[in-house]
């Protein structure tokens, strides 16, 4: 996994709450190999059935080309467990998501792919989105080590993140290798469970 330390990049505001992972990548793209999924990115939000860009859709604005950050609303990426919701955004260049809250499985999936889900209080996320709407294409910084988000106007928000997750992201540590280091504990657990829940 690629380590994540700090990025400064164009950020896209998405105001709508409860954006579900079916919007981020529709189900019809999921059966394809990852390289073919790239074009599924917010496909039906961005494009009409003929593949033409829809009008008035923030994501279609060329100023957001090269964006690496999405600033969203409550319960971002809720719904289906599809990890493609993270990988399709990764493959489209995104590395950090800022929202008041996230869909639980998406939140966990982010850490498996070296991207950072940042929780900011609702009013701070709303303020940030408003700033981004006021100056489209403005940059935001996410500094994982310092646990800060820097808005285009220079205001700094501190965010909380579990030290376990932070550590893995900073080092690009892969969880499977980490867990395999606990082999003795797992074996001991299994031994004990064999006695207790012998019917399993």
């Amino acid at each position: 996994m690629e380590p994540f330390t700090k990025i400064t990049a164009v950020a896209v505001p998405i105001d709508q709450p409860n954006v579900d992972t079916d919007q981020i990548i529709p189900a019809r793209f999921l059966g394809s190999p990852r390289p073919d999924q790239v074009k599924g990115f917010f496909r039906d939000v961005r494009l009409d059935p003929n593949g033409q860009p829809k009008e008035g859709v923030t994501l279609n604005n060329p100023v957001y080309a090269g964006a690496k950050i999405i600033v969203a609303n409550n319960n971002f990426a809720c719904g289906s467990s599809r990890e493609s919701a993270v990988t399709v955004m990764y493959d489209n260049g995104y590395r950090a998501f800022i929202a008041p809250s996230f869909g639980d499985i998406f939140f966990n999936n982010c850490f498996q792919n070296g991207v950072v889900p940042v929780r900011l209080p609702a009013e701070r996320a709303a303020r940030l989105r408003a700033l981004l709407h006021a100056s489209p294409g403005a940059q935001v910084s996410v500094d994982l080590a310092a646990q800060t988000v820097t808005s285009p106007d220079g205001e700094i928000d501190r965010f909380e993140i579990d030290s376990f997750r932070k550590d893995c992201l900073l080092k690009g540590l892969d969880e499977v290798s980490l867990t395999l280091g606990y082999e003795a504990d797992i074996a001991r657990f299994e031994q004990r469970q064999k006695g207790e829940l012998s019917w399993l």
């Binding site: 499985i105 966990n108 999936n109 579990d162 969880e175 499977v176 980490l178 867990t179 299994e190």
Partner: peptide, 20 residues
């Protein structure tokens, strides 16, 4: 509970998951 495919691989390899 549901998990993503990286965690699926993690469970396959270790029968465990990191959880808060």
């Amino acid at each position: 509970f549901g998990i993503g495919s990286s965690e699926v691989a993690h469970v396959m390899a270790t029968q465990c998951l990191w959880q808060r």
